[in-house]
């Protein structure tokens, strides 16, 4: 019973169900082959392809924990990719590792600034997060188009391509990037006091203020982190297609990321967050997409399935559904687990 109440249980159950369905319908799903010291297989593809969403969803988790939301992540991805590719394209030696590193650094810095801009609007000017990040969501792709001069910039750069296609220690480099991001975010949130203070601000902003928490800085930092992670995701995406497509890069990724966070058991109302839950949520969504593709459904139609998932998740979380379920269980156990709340009287 206690296990059933754990907040990860639904997400894990969904993931396991998907894997089982896949394994039954295509037995090769679980098989992983070793070729020239590099691993291949459907699962490996899922791990690699999930990297951009993983980065964006990690940032989104922290922002949502502060009672916020970041709609601009897709646009930041587009800008970041455009910046990186423009730097490489302008260089006479696109295969030079130094050039690629500079391009990555500049793109990351620009994303960080864009995240800081969102944070400024939300934390300092007090604008609703949805609207504040909507501004950049609107303007961001325009900026990306300006950077690329209105074209889809394409490049040939081996070091840059390595980011999405390369292998290290037999594993896709992109997957290792997302692992690194998970570890870094988890260390910063859980090995320092940041996670606890973020949750406190998200759960009860006024109590946190009275306790002396610097909530403005914490909220601002969350948007900066989200911007930076989205920027790295943009680099991964553009490396995968070796092009900066301002219109397609990160399209709808904010919605996938929000969905992953919610699937992982973090409430959109803010407060307690679960990075592990988000990781499971991302893998669930990526597996779902892979399943849809495998089933022969055109990828374009996949939003219908995502819509179904969203509806199921929100219905499960809906207060009305919960109270209906609670009524059912109470009828079964008449003693009832009603929580004693003497304060309700005052």
């Amino acid at each position: 019973m206690k296990l059933l109440r754990h907040r990860l249980v639904w997400a894990v159950a969904a993931l396991v169900t998907l894997i089982v369905v896949n394994t039954i319908s295509r037995p090769t799903f679980l098989s992983i082959t070793l070729q020239d010291g590099e691993l291949y297989g459907s699962l490996i593809d899922i791990l690699r392809n999930s990297a951009p969403l993983m980065l964006v969803a990690l940032g989104m988790t922290v922002v949502i924990a502060t009672r916020g939301i970041d709609l601009s992540v897709g646009a930041i991805m587009a800008v970041s990719g455009a910046v990186a590719l423009t730097v490489i394209e302008a260089s006479p030696t696109p295969d030079n590792l130094g050039v690629v590193l500079v391009a990555i650094a500049v793109a990351a810095l620009v994303s960080l600034v864009l995240g800081a801009w969102n944070g400024l609007l939300v934390a300092v000017l007090g604008i609703q997060p949805i609207i504040a990040t909507l501004v950049l969501m609107l303007a961001g792709r325009g900026i990306a188009l300006l950077i690329t001069g209105g074209f889809i910039t394409t490049i040939n750069s081996e070091p840059y391509q390595f980011i999405s296609q390369g292998y290290v220690l037999g594993l896709p480099f992109a997957f290792l990037v997302s692992i690194a991001a998970i570890v870094v975010v988890a260390l910063i949130e859980r090995r320092t006091a940041l996670g606890m203070l973020t949750e406190a601000v998200g759960i009860n902003p006024e109590a946190s203020r009275l306790a002396g928490v610097r909530s403005r800085g914490i909220v601002w930092g969350a948007y900066i982190a989200s911007g930076l992670l989205a920027g790295i995701a943009g680099i991964l995406y553009s490396s995968n297609i070796m092009a900066a497509d301002a219109n397609a890069a990160g399209l709808y990724i904010e919605l996938d990321a929000i969905l992953a966070v919610v699937l992982g058991g973090t409430s959109l109302a803010g407060g307690k967050f679960s990075l592990a839950g988000t990781v499971v949520g991302v893998f669930t969504i990526q597996t779902l997409k892979s399943t849809i593709t495998f089933l022969g459904v055109p990828p374009a139609v996949s939003p219908v399935f995502l819509a179904a998932v969203v509806v199921i998740v929100v219905l499960v979380q809906s207060p009305r559904t919960r109270s209906a379920l609670a009524r059912l269980t109470r009828r079964r156990t008449p003693a009832g687990g009603a929580r004693i709340d003497p304060e309700a009287a005052s």
Binding site: L134, V135, L138, A139, R141, L146, G149
Partner: peptide, 14 residues
């Protein structure tokens, strides 16, 4: 560039 449309709209919205 038509991309200025979205940028201008974003700025105006802000």
């Amino acid at each position: 560039e038509q991309s200025w449309t979205r940028i201008t709209i974003g700025a105006l919205l802000l």
